[in-house]
């Protein structure tokens, strides 16, 4: 088998460092590291951010969670240690297949903002600071 690169990429290729890790380890819920979970059957994580523009501290969820109460923003950055419930401004969904849903209320009640697979919402429309639970809609 053979791969060859486009000629146009020669210069760029030479400038890029190699040795990037390919297979992320299975992620733990809210360990402060947002990962896709290609090496396990866990969901690619839903990462909730304290600030708009996907900035500040984040919390990472890899299972449907019926209540964000009790979780705090875990990574370093603005908002670290603050409660996740009703405090998230935006989110990234790192699952490669399933649409993430972030609900207004606990127990997956109320309306939800939907974040397609492998994409982000920089600022929630209405669950902005109103997030209380999350799930995924899988195809």
């Amino acid at each position: 088998m053979h791969i060859k690169r486009s000629a146009a990429l020669v210069v760029a290729a030479a400038a890029i460092a190699t040795g990037v890790s390919m297979a992320p380890a299975a992620a733990a819920q809210n360990n402060g590291v947002c990962t896709t979970s290609v090496s396990s059957n866990l969901f690619g994580e839903l990462c909730l951010y304290y600030n708009s523009g996907l900035s500040g501290s984040h919390a990472d969820f890899n299972v449907p969670t019926r209540d964000h109460a009790g979780y705090v923003f875990s990574s370093s950055g603005a908002g670290q240690g603050q409660q996740v419930k009703n405090n998230a401004a935006g989110a990234t969904n790192l699952d490669t297949e399933c649409t993430a849903s972030v609900y207004f209320n606990s127990g997956w009640s109320g309306v939800a903002d939907y974040i397609p697979a492998r994409s982000s919402v920089e600022r929630f429309v209405r669950v902005y600071n109103e997030n209380a639970s999350n799930h995924w809609e899988c195809p």
Binding site: S6, L9, A14, A17, V20, V33, S55, S57, H58, G77
Partner: peptide, 21 residues
Amino acid sequence: MTQRPRGRAIAPAAAAVGALL
């Protein structure tokens, strides 16, 4: 587990692919 840089995770996709290919 290594801590990744936080915040917006942006990969220089095309360039990185070039390197890998």
